[in-house]
């Protein structure tokens, strides 16, 4: 089940300084959205706010769940249940195998059998089955990012947030990854928000938002 995003009057502050401002934004469920902007504009901050890693004032609601009104613990619980995240430099546990990385959230999730089944299916779909037992530090960049995608989707989240997922990949690998990601999201009806300065990523998305100096414009 996908979730729509609704934001109004959101401000995320660090002390007196506003890190992120979003006046109004509404994203329908199952949409693929990209946040673009120059380095330092606040793309990652925006993504962290959407993930509930940063708290702010105003309203930031995924479906009925307003993250601004939730405690830190509740936001963590919501994120664990409804969100998956992918990062620029993969953030894999290098000493573990691809499959162990894909299943890393099984450490704290009770539904381990279901998670395991879904991770295996996703690995097969993304062409990683043959690499399941290979250590993460022996995978290529593209393979690592695919493992990170499986890790983010293994618990079947409604929302996928990705921070510059193609930045560490070569062009061909980046294109293949985005195609796979978009296909997976559309097939499974997921809301996707990607922070990226990669024009190829913009082209694959339903909507592109721009952020400048911490202000996200809905246009």
């Amino acid at each position: 089940m996908s979730l729509p995003l609704s934001i109004s009057g959101l401000t995320v502050r660090a002390g007196a300084r506003a890190l992120l401002t979003i006046e109004e934004l509404a994203l329908p469920a199952c949409s693929l959205t990209c946040i673009r902007g120059p380095s330092g504009a606040g793309k990652t901050t925006a993504l962290h706010a959407l993930a509930g890693l940063l708290s702010g004032t105003g309203r930031l609601a995924w479906g009925d769940a307003d993250l601004c009104r939730m405690s830190r613990m509740a936001r963590t619980r919501f994120r664990g249940a409804q969100m998956g995240m992918v990062f620029q430099d993969f953030l894999l546990f290098e000493e573990l195998t691809a499959r162990e990385n894909a299943l890393i959230s099984a450490v704290f999730r009770p539904d381990r059998a279901a998670l395991s089944r879904r991770a295996d299916a996703l690995m097969e779909r993304l062409g990683l089955s043959g690499l399941a037992q290979r250590r993460a530090d022996r995978l290529s960049g593209g393979e690592r990012q695919r493992v990170a995608v499986v890790r983010a989707l293994a618990h079947d989240p409604a929302i996928l947030l990705a921070d510059e997922p193609t930045a560490s990949l070569d062009r061909a690998t980046a294109d293949a990854l985005i195609a796979d990601l978009a296909a997976l999201a559309r097939a499974e009806g997921r809301s996707v928000v990607i922070a990226s300065h990669d024009p190829q990523v913009w082209d694959a998305m339903d909507r592109v938002l721009t952020i400048r100096d911490g202000v996200l414009e809905a246009g």
């Binding site: 619980r77 994120r79 664990g80 450490v107 890790r151």
Partner: peptide
């Protein structure tokens, strides 16, 4: 700390 932050980003509770 990055690994711990990743786990928290993936929804790991503070107790974990």
């Amino acid at each position: 700390s990055r690994r711990l932050a990743l786990l928290q980003a993936l929804g790991a509770p503070a107790r974990m």
